[in-house]
Simulated scan of single mutants.
Amino acid sequence: MARTQPVPSLIAIIMIAGMCAAVLLTQGRTVGIQQAVVNTLDDAGTRTIIVRADAGAGLDDSVLARLHRLSSVATAVGFGDPVDATNSYLPGGTRVAAHTFYSLSPAQLGIQGTDSVDNAIASPEALEELGMAEPSGSISTVDGLEYPVTAQLDVPDHLAFMEPLIVIPRESSPDESQQGEPLTVLVVVANQASEVPQLTAVLRSVLGVSDPESVSIELSGDLIELRELVDSQLASSGRSLTLLIFTVTAVLVTATLTALIMLRRRDYGRRRALGASQRLICALVLTQTSTIAIVGSAAGAILAFAVLAASGVPQPPWQYFLAVASLATAIGSVSAVTPAVVAARRDPARELRVP
């Protein structure tokens, strides 16, 4: 049926493809930029919660096991009381704070296996402060201890505030029944920025400290507010345009399909005269229209993907492409309901008399 009237069918395909492509090239571009901006803000530390505790607060590394059970926690690491350290071969050199480091998964800082336990690992900035060109040699702390420097540490973004950073990894026991090693800094990263407020609310209840007043919790409040503002503003910026495009296209597709059905009214009348039911006529029209809508939506989505890829702008997620194509198909199919009902209810005897 669609092939017998190529021009009206092609017009309908072009309109649906244009609708799908227009939405993806406008609102879809905005969604891609929105995701890129929000991801950048997330990487900047909006998911990070920093807990600072006094030396006698009672915060110890057993809290890591309790945090590990929370589904909203992506990672949690603890640091002991810092101690000044210098290059063992440069007496009187620059002092850099060294922290004992506790984690249930040492690989979170790029520490593999247990070879690094009780050895010092320094960031590039710390190595420069110590006067070391390479991660080799040793450091001496002010309390008389010496640790070999065995590796360089790539500091993740959520620990950048501790630079220059030297860590001395220690094994953390997951047994909560035992007294753990004291911590002065606990860094918790949520899976999503939206989970930070809820995680902060329950964090105090799992710290297990003896004096809650000696513990402070820090958030990237400004970044969180900025993320929410950017997310909401970009999400709402193109909704009216999207609604307008879908509405105008739905009206045009309805008019085109009505004209297409009027051109085939003798065919529908002949089918009705041969015993076809109204339901069958509706099914024929809707099947034809749905096929046209699927072809148009797929063509529009492919065209928009190619244009966005060629322009180099951030692409919206594939779920957005699928959602827009599905909505365009649905609009094209629903637009045919009224013409299909009109075609099914035409009098077959009258239609057969049409020249």
Rank of each mutant, 00 (worst) to 15 (best):
A304H: 05
P197Y: 00
V117N: 07
D81M: 10
A306R: 00
A107L: 14
A107I: 14
P135E: 10
T4S: 14
I292L: 15
E171D: 04
F305D: 04
A299K: 09
T287G: 15
P182W: 03
L203F: 11
P124A: 13
A349D: 14
S103I: 04
I261F: 08
S326P: 00
I217T: 12
L67T: 01
M162S: 09
G45P: 03
T40I: 00
D42Q: 07
E129G: 02
A151E: 13
G78D: 09
G296W: 12
P314V: 13
P124C: 06
L226E: 04
S290G: 15
V185Y: 05
T289P: 00
S216N: 12
C20I: 06
P174R: 07
C20E: 05
M132G: 01
A133K: 14
L10V: 04
I166E: 07
L67Q: 03
N191P: 02
P169S: 05
M262A: 13
A98S: 04
P8Q: 04
A151K: 09
A330R: 00
L260G: 08
F161W: 07
S210D: 10
A122W: 07
A328R: 02
G18A: 11
L159I: 05
L186A: 07
S277H: 05
D154C: 00
P164I: 06
H158P: 07
L153P: 14
Q198N: 08
S216C: 06
V215F: 04
A276N: 08
A120C: 13
V155Q: 02
A235W: 02
A12P: 01
G144N: 05
